[in-house]
Design a protein around this nucleic acid. Structure first.
Length: 571
DNA sequence: GCCGTTTTCGGCCCGACTGTTTTCAGTCG
C-alpha cells in the first residue's frame, strides 16, 4: 500500500511514508501478528495507529483489505514491483503508464528496448539506457555476500588502499561495519586533503581488482570487483567531517533519520558534513562520532546496534550496555574432531587452541551415530573418546578439554544417545539434522526437557541462501529454554549464523542463556568466533548473557541446576 | 497516516546527482 501511495505522489507522500514505516515494524515483529490482535496491543506498536491497525485486522479476518483492492484497480500494481530497481521510481512509472498506457513488466521492457519510452518528455536517451542497464544488473546481482566473505574482501581492499600515501584515514562503513549477516555492497570511507582526492580516486579505479568503473567523480567512485562482480563504493571527505561522514555512511538509514529528527528537535541540523546550529550554521560537532552523539545528549551507540530498534531512546537514558566482545569469550563449546567429520585429531585441536587463543576450556562435540554421512559416533566410541580426552588432558596438565557430543534429535524428538552415556559427558549439544520440511517445535521442546541436554545447536537449521529455516514457534522454544535451563546456540558458521540476530534479541530479553560456538570442522574455522560475537552485539548482548564468558566451574553449576530441577520435576 | 518533555495540529532527514531543464523534479543513499 505504501508503494501504491507513492505512485499517487505528492498529496499522499506522507501516507506512503507511514505505511512504509508500519511495514518495517510488521517485518521485524517477534511474534505472530494475531497475538497482538488478541491482546489488543496492535496500536501500541510504533508506527501503527488506528487506521493501519484496522487494516491489519481486516486482512487477518478476511484475507483482503478493501482499500488495497480499490487502489489496485486504479494503479498498475504489476509495475510497482519494479520500484526496487534503480531508476524506476514511482513518478517515472506513473508517467510511463499514463502516457503510453503500459500496464505490465513485459510491455515496459519492450518499450524501453524499442526506444518508445525515450520519446516521453523527461525521458531522454541517456536515461532510458541507464534504466535498461539497471534492469539487467538487478536481474543478475540479487544474491548478497555472506558477512564472512564480505569482511575478507573488504579487509583485503583496505590493505591495498592503505598503501596510497595520501590517505589519512580509511575505514569500512555501511552494513559491513554494522556486521549484518549478509552484505549487498562494500562501502569504504576515506579522509584526505582536497588536493589529493583526484589521485586517490584514480589509484582506486585503476587498481587490479577492478572489473568495471560504474561512476567516478572528485569525491566518490563506484566499481565492480573482478572476483565476484560485487559493487564497492568509495567516498573521500576531510578530517573535520570524519565523524559525521562515518556516521552517515554506516547507517542504518533508519538510525540516521531518527538521529536527524533528534537534532532538529534540539534546533540543530545533522548531515554527513557535521552537526550544525540550525540558525547560525555554526559547527557544533563532526570530527568524531562520539562528539556528535554527545552533542545530541546521547551516549555513543556501537555500530552493531544502529538499526533504530530502540537504541536511540536507550542512549538518551544513558543506558547503552557494554556489549560483549571477543576477549570475554572463555571457551568454544562446539567443534568436531577427526573422530567424526572434523579434520584434525583432538590433541592437534587442543594444542592449536592453547597456542592461538586465550580460552580456558573447549568441548569436543562430534556427531552421534545416526549422522552416518558425518561418521557419527556409537556409544562405544563415545566411551573410548572419553578415555582418550582424559589422557590428552593429563599430557596438557589441566582439564582443558571437556567431553561432549552433538547428539541428533530424532524424528520423534528422542535423542540418538542414551541418558546413561550422556550423563558421563561434560557438555551435550542437541541438534536437528533431518526432517527440515516439517514444523520442528515439538522435537526441540522434547530435547530441552532432557536433563542431560545443555544446549540446542543451530536451532533453526537454516543455511543462508541455500536452505530456509524449518518451521518453528520461536516463542515456545524460548519459553521452554528458560523453564528447562537449556542454552540456545549462536552458531557462528558463516552460512548458519543461527540463531539469527532478531531471535537472539528475543531470547536475551527473556533471559535465555546463549552459547556462541564455532562448530568448527577444522582449526581454520575457530576464528568464526568473532562472527558469532558480532551477531550477539547486534542483539545487544552483554557478557552476562553469554554462557561461555563464564568460568567452567560456573557453567558446571548452571548445568547442575538444570539436572536437579528436571529430576525433581520427574520424581 | 502517525505522532507529541515546546505540539492533538502541523509537521514528517538531508544533501548530491542526473537528465533534462532554462530553475527543477525525481531518484538515490
Amino acid at each position: 500500500m505504501s508503494n501504491l501511495y507513492k505512485y499517487i505522489g505528492t498529496p499522499e507522500r506522507f501516507r506512503a511514508l507511514s505505511y512504509k514505516k508500519a511495514s518495517n515494524v510488521l517485518d521485524d515483529l517477534p511474534n505472530d501478528v494475531t497475538e497482538y490482535i488478541q491482546n489488543n496491543t496492535l496500536e501500541d506498536l510504533p508506527g501503527i495507529g488506528e487506521s493501519i491497525a484496522d487494516k491489519i485486522r481486516e486482512y487477518i479476518n478476511s484475507g483482503t483489505i478493501t482499500k488495497y483492492e480499490q487502489l489496485k484497480k486504479e494503479i498498475p500494481h504489476e509495475l510497482l514491483e519494479m520500484m526496487e530497481i534503480k531508476g524506476f521510481g514511482p513518478q517515472s512509472i506513473k508517467k510511463i503508464h499514463t502516457v503510453l498506457n503500459i500496464t505490465s513488466k513485459n510491455e515496459l521492457m519492450k518499450a524501453l528496448q524499442s526506444g518508445t519510452i525515450a520519446t516521453i518528455k523527461g525521458f531522454g536517451k541517456k536515461r532510458t539506457e541507464a534504466m535498461l542497464e539497471n534492469l539487467n544488473l538487478y536481474q543478475q546481482t540479487e544474491k548478497r555476500m555472506l558477512l564472512r566473505d564480505a569482511l575478507a574482501i573488504g579487509e583485503s581492499i583496505l590493505k591495498k588502499l592503505q598503501k596510497i600515501p595520501e590517505i589519512k584515514n580509511i575505514e569500512l562503513a555501511g552494513s559491513l561495519r554494522r556486521r549484518k549477516e549478509t552484505i549487498g555492497d562494500i562501502d569504504i570511507l576515506i579522509s584526505a586533503n582536497n588536493r589529493d582526492r583526484k589521485k586517490i580516486i584514480h589509484d582506486f579505479t585503476n587498481s587490479d581488482m577492478v572489473k568495471k568503473i560504474l561512476a567516478k567523480g572528485n569525491t566518490k567512485a563506484s566499481i565492480t570487483l573482478k572476483q565476484n562482480d560485487k559493487q564497492v563504493d568509495v567516498r573521500i571527505i576531510n578530517d573535520l567531517e570524519w565523524g559525521s561522514a562515518l556516521l552517515y555512511f554506516t547507517g542504518s538509514k533508519e538510525h540516521n533519520i531518527h538521529l536527524r529528527t533528534v537534532a532538529k528537535e534540539k534546533h540543530m541540523k545533522l548531515s554527513e558534513y557535521g552537526l550544525f546550529n540550525q540558525i547560525s550554521y555554526v559547527r557544533i560537532a563532526g570530527e568524531t562520532e562520539a562528539s556528535i552523539y554527545q552533542a545530541l545528549g546521547l551516549q555513543s551507540i556501537p555500530p552493531e546496534m544502529r538499526e533504530d530498534k530502540g537504541e536511540i531512546k536507550l542512549a538518551s537514558e544513558q543506558k547503552i550496555p557494554t556489549l560483549i566482545s571477543l576477549k570475554d569469550i572463555k571457551g568454544d563449546l562446539q567443534m568436531h574432531s577427526n573422530w567424526s567429520d572434523g579434520t584434525q585429531t583432538i590433541e592437534e585441536i587442543a594444542r592449536f587452541i592453547k597456542n592461538h587463543f586465550n580460552y580456558k576450556y573447549i568441548a569436543i562435540t562430534d556427531h552421534s551415530q545416526s549422522s552416518r554421512i558425518a561418521n557419527g559416533l556409537t556409544e562405544q566410541q563415545i566411551l573410548k573418546q572419553i578415555i582418550e580426552i582424559k589422557a590428552i588432558n593429563e599430557k596438557l596438565d589441566e582439564a582443558f578439554i571437556k567431553t561432549g557430543i552433538e547428539v541428533d534429535i530424532l524424528a520423534n524428538g528422542n535423542l540418538d544417545i542414551s541418558d546413561e552415556i550422556m550423563a558421563q559427558l561434560d557438555w551435550v549439544t542437541a541438534s536437528i539434522h533431518s526432517g527440515f520440511k516439517r514444523d520442528n517445535t515439538d522435537r526441540i521442546i522434547k530435547a530441552c526437557q532432557n536433563p542431560y541436554v545443555s544446549c540446542i545447536g543451530h536451532p533453526t537449521g537454516r543455511l543462508i541462501g541455500e536452505r530456509n529455516p524449518y518451521k518453528l514457534d520461536i516463542k515456545s522454544i524460548i519459553e521452554t529454554a528458560v523453564s528447562t535451563h537449556t542454552a540456545l546456540e549462536i552458531n557462528a558458521q558463516p552460512q548458519r549464523m543461527d540463531l539469527k540476530d532478531d531471535y537472539v534479541f528475543l531470547a536475551r530479553e527473556k533471559a535465555v542463556k546463549l552459547v556462541i560456538s564455532t562448530d568448527s570442522h577444522s582449526i581454520q574455522q575457530l576464528d568464526f568466533m568473532t562472527l558469532g560475537v558480532d551477531l550477539a552485539k547486534r542483539a545487544w548482548c552483554k557478557p552476562s548473557d553469554i554462557l561461555n564468558t563464564m568460568t567452567w566451574e560456573e557453567i558446571e553449576k548452571w548445568l547442575k541446576t538444570k539436572k536437579r530441577h528436571l529430576m525433581h520435576e520427574m520424581a
